[in-house]
Measured scan of single mutants.
Amino acid sequence: NQASVVANQLIPISTALTLVMMRSEVVTPVGIPAEDIPRLVSMTVNRAVPLGTTLMPDMVKGYA
């Protein structure tokens, strides 16, 4: 089972991601792979991401 990136807090729309905002967790459905966390830092989300939500590729500008 692959770990995915999960929001560690509410991430408001257009917020630049930082390490403290994300954690890795094995979830269903599978989202962005946890090993991509370093790549996600400073990318922005294009929607509000509630606490505990799995980050999907279409939620992060420039990721997909």
Rank of each mutant, 00 (worst) to 15 (best):
A34V: 09
P50E: 10
M56P: 02
V6N: 02
T53Q: 13
I32E: 00
G52A: 06
A34P: 06
P33W: 08
T53M: 12
I11G: 01
V27S: 05
V49Q: 02
V45C: 05
I11H: 01
A34K: 07
P29K: 05
P29A: 04
V41E: 06
R47A: 09
I11R: 00
L17V: 03
M59K: 02
L10N: 14
I37H: 02
L40K: 00
P50L: 09
A34Q: 06
R39K: 12
S42R: 08
E35P: 07
V20M: 13
N1T: 15
M59Q: 05
V5M: 02
T18E: 10
E35W: 12
P29Q: 05
V45S: 06
T15M: 08
A34C: 07
M59I: 05
A48M: 15
V26M: 13
G52H: 08
V27R: 13
T53D: 09
I32W: 02
P50Q: 14
Y63P: 04
K61L: 15
N8T: 12
P38K: 10
A48D: 13
I11A: 02
T44F: 14
P57M: 07
V41Y: 04
V30D: 07
N8L: 05
Q9I: 10
G31H: 02
P38T: 15
P33H: 09
V27N: 03
V26T: 10
P33F: 08
G31F: 03
P38Y: 08
S14L: 10
T18D: 06
P50N: 09
L51P: 10
M43E: 04
P38R: 09
R39I: 11
N8A: 15
L19T: 09
K61W: 14
T44D: 04
M21D: 04
L17T: 00
V27D: 01
M56Q: 14
L55Y: 01
R23K: 14
M22W: 03
Q9P: 00
L55V: 07
I11L: 06
Q2P: 11
S42V: 03
L51T: 14
V20W: 12
L19H: 10
T15A: 15
S4G: 04
N46A: 07
A34S: 11
L10H: 13
D58A: 10
A16G: 08
T15K: 06
T53H: 12
N46R: 11
K61Q: 15
T15L: 05
Y63T: 03
V6P: 01
I37V: 07
Q2R: 10
E25F: 06
M21H: 09
V27T: 10
A34T: 08
L51S: 15
M43I: 03
S42K: 11
V60I: 14
L19Q: 10
L55G: 02
S4W: 03
S24C: 06
S4Q: 00
V20H: 13
V60Y: 01
V26F: 08
S14E: 14
T28S: 15
P50W: 05
V5E: 01
P57D: 06
M22R: 00
I13R: 12
R23F: 04
P12I: 04
L40W: 03
V41M: 06
N46P: 02
P12G: 08
D58S: 12
E25S: 10
Q2T: 15
R39C: 07
L19Y: 12
D58W: 13
L40C: 03
P12A: 10
L55E: 01
A64T: 15
I13F: 11
A64H: 13
M22I: 09
P33M: 06
P50C: 06
L40S: 00
V49A: 04
L17R: 00
G62D: 14
S4M: 01
L17G: 00
V45L: 10
V41R: 05
A7H: 01
L40M: 07
M21R: 00
G31Y: 02
M59A: 10
M21V: 03
S42A: 12
V26K: 11
I32F: 02
L55N: 01
R39Y: 11
A7I: 04
G52Q: 01
P57I: 06
E35A: 13
A16Y: 09
T18H: 05
T53P: 00
M22V: 06
P38G: 12
I32V: 06
M56T: 10
K61F: 11
P50I: 05
V49F: 03
V49E: 03
V60D: 01
S24T: 11
V30M: 15
V49T: 04
I32C: 04
T54E: 02
V6G: 00
K61G: 08
A48K: 11
I32R: 01
R47I: 12
V6K: 02
T44C: 07
P33R: 09
V20D: 15
T53E: 09
I13M: 14
T54D: 00
S24V: 10
N8G: 09
S14G: 15
L17I: 10
N8E: 07
T28E: 14
A48G: 11
N8F: 04
T18M: 07
V6E: 01
P29V: 05
A64M: 15
D36T: 09
M43C: 07
M21G: 02
M59R: 01
G52N: 13
D58T: 10
S42M: 09
V41W: 02
K61S: 14
V26R: 10
L10S: 13
V27F: 03
N46V: 11
E25K: 14
V5L: 02
R23H: 05
T28G: 06
M43K: 12
A16R: 10
M21T: 02
E25C: 07
L40E: 00
K61P: 13
A34M: 07
E25R: 12
L51Q: 14
S24D: 07
E25Y: 07
V49W: 03
A34I: 07
N1I: 14
R23Y: 05
V26A: 11
L19A: 11
E35V: 15
S14W: 14
I13Y: 10
A64C: 08
I13T: 13
S42P: 00
S14A: 12
V6L: 07
V45P: 02
L40P: 00
M43R: 12
Y63Q: 03
E25Q: 15
V60A: 02
V26Q: 11
E35D: 13
I37F: 02
A34W: 07
R39W: 09
V6I: 12
A7S: 14
G62E: 11
P12W: 04
G62V: 04
I13G: 11
V41L: 12
A34E: 09
Y63C: 04
P57T: 06
S14F: 14
L19E: 11
A34H: 07
M56A: 06
L51F: 13
V49M: 04
R39L: 13
V20C: 05
T15R: 07
L51N: 14
I37D: 02
Q9G: 04
T15E: 08
V6F: 01
G62N: 11
D58F: 12
R39P: 01
I11Y: 01
A16D: 06
L55R: 01
K61A: 13
